[in-house]
C-alpha cells in the first residue's frame, strides 16, 4: 500500500483528524475553507476564532478546523455568532453558511445583522442549489437552470429571480461594513476578500460579508470541465465578482 506523503500543504488551522474532508469530489467548499484556513494562519488568530456553521453542506465543516466551532440550525448561524460577539467582543466570529441558509430561511438575520453593523464576518457559499437535500431550487438558482424543483428550468415569472446577496447587503450596510463577492475560480482574489473581511472585524469597523461562488457537480450533474465552466464563466454573468462596499469607499 502506498504510504508516501504527497498531500498538498494543509493550513495549520485545519484539523488533520477530519481529513480527508467529507465534501463530494469537485465541491467548492474545500477551496473556500482552504482560503479561510490560510487567512486564519496568516493572521495568527487560531486561538481567537469561533467558527459557526449552518445546516446544508456547510455543516460538514463542524470539525474541519482546529478552532472552536459551533454547528447551529438552518439559517441561525448568524444570530449565534452575533450572540457570541456581543457577549465576548474579544472573539473573532465567522458565520459560514450556504445560499439557502443566508438568503432564504435566515435572510432576516443577515439583513438585521448587516443593518445593525454587527462586528462579525459572514461567509456565504453560493452554489445555486440546495445541495444537501438533493438539488432543489435555491434562492440563487440561475434563470433557466434545471433543479429538482424546477425540472423544466427556473421560470422567473413563476419562481422569481435569483437573490443578489452582496448587492443587497451593500445597499443596506453602513459605513465600516465590508462586502464582496469572490469565486473559487479566482482563489487568490477570494482569499484576499476573506482576509479583508476578517481584518475588518478585527479592526472593529463593522459587518463583513463575503459571497463565494462555488460548485456542486453532484447536483449540477456536470463533469469536471462543465462544472468549472459554470462557476468560472456562467455564474459571474449573473453574479458579478468584486468588492461592493469597503470602509472608506475604495471598492476594487
Amino acid at each position: 500500500m502506498e504510504t508516501k506523503e504527497i498531500l498538498p500543504k494543509m493550513p495549520k488551522s485545519w484539523n488533520p483528524a477530519s481529513k480527508p474532508h467529507k465534501f463530494c469530489p469537485g465541491c467548492g467548499h474545500g477551496l473556500v475553507l482552504k482560503a479561510l484556513g490560510q487567512v486564519i494562519d496568516e493572521l495568527n488568530i487560531q486561538d481567537r476564532v469561533v467558527f459557526g456553521c449552518d445546516i446544508g453542506c456547510s455543516l460538514l465543516s463542524w470539525d474541519f478546523f482546529n478552532v472552536d466551532t459551533v454547528q447551529t440550525h438552518h439559517g441561525r448561524t448568524t444570530p449565534v455568532m452575533v450572540g457570541i460577539k456581543r457577549a465576548n467582543p474579544d472573539l473573532i466570529t465567522i458565520a459560514y453558511m450556504g445560499d439557502g441558509g443566508g438568503y432564504a430561511i435566515g435572510s432576516q438575520h443577515l439583513v438585521n445583522a448587516a443593518n445593525r453593523n454587527d462586528i462579525i464576518t459572514a461567509i456565504l457559499v453560493n452554489n445555486t442549489v440546495y445541495a444537501m437535500t438533493g438539488g432543489q431550487m435555491a434562492p440563487t438558482t440561475m434563470p433557466g437552470q434545471k433543479t429538482e424543483t424546477t425540472p423544466y428550468g427556473r421560470d422567473i415569472k413563476e419562481a422569481g429571480y435569483p437573490m443578489l446577496g452582496p448587492e443587497m447587503v451593500a445597499a443596506i450596510a453602513h459605513e465600516g461594513a465590508y462586502v464582496a463577492r469572490g469565486s473559487i475560480a479566482k482563489f487568490r482574489q477570494l482569499k484576499t476578500f476573506i482576509k479583508k473581511a476578517i481584518e475588518n472585524q478585527m479592526a472593529g469597523r463593522g459587518f463583513s460579508f463575503i459571497e463565494a461562488l462555488s460548485t456542486c457537480p453532484t447536483n449540477w450533474r456536470t463533469n469536471a470541465e462543465k462544472t468549472w465552466d459554470f462557476v468560472e464563466n456562467i455564474m459571474p454573468k449573473y453574479f458579478p465578482i468584486g468588492e461592493y462596499k469597503v470602509p472608506g469607499g475604495k471598492e476594487e
Binding site: V67, D68, Q71
Partner: peptide, 19 residues
C-alpha cells in the same frame, strides 16, 4: 468556546454539534 490556549496545540478544539 474561546477558552485559553490554541486549539489543537494547547487544548482540543471545541467541536460543538447537534447533527
Amino acid at each position: 468556546v474561546g477558552k485559553a490556549g490554541t486549539p489543537g496545540k494547547d487544548r482540543p478544539a471545541a467541536h460543538l454539534r447537534n447533527t
